[in-house]
């Protein structure tokens, strides 16, 4: 196997996640898209570790950081969902359009 196969898998996962994050209206579905994108980072970092610097642990540490980012994203995403649902009964991003920057 070669590095390019792993990176192609990562690119495909990243593109699918990007589509979800851009197109979905529900906040939880957007989080799913973000998680797919971070998962692509995990695959790419693991492949880079194995094929370019297997004798150094740096790539593995990067994978660990990406896994942590995923956990943090999930916890904070659900906390924000709970907060905005509790205060305004909002569960889709289009209903929270007033939170965006003024043009």
């Amino acid at each position: 196997m070669i590095l390019e196969l792993f990176l192609l898998l990562a690119a495909a996962l990243f593109a699918v996640g990007l589509f979800g994050a851009l197109s979905q209206q529900s906040i939880v579905m957007i989080m799913m898209g973000l998680e797919l994108m971070i998962n692509a980072i995990i695959v790419a970092a693991a492949a880079f570790w194995f094929y370019t610097s297997a004798d150094r642990p740096d790539g593995q540490v990067l994978v660990l950081v990406a896994i942590t980012a995923m956990a943090v994203e999930m916890a904070m995403g659900f906390a924000v969902t709970t907060a905005i649902f509790r205060s305004r009964d909002v569960d889709v991003v289009d209903s929270a359009g007033d939170l965006k920057d003024a043009p």
Binding site: L18, F19, S23
Partner: peptide, 14 residues
């Protein structure tokens, strides 16, 4: 639009 952006991203990355 989302489909175009994500397909474009995949093509660029690949």
């Amino acid at each position: 639009g989302a489909l175009a952006i994500s397909v474009g991203t995949f093509v660029a990355l690949a």
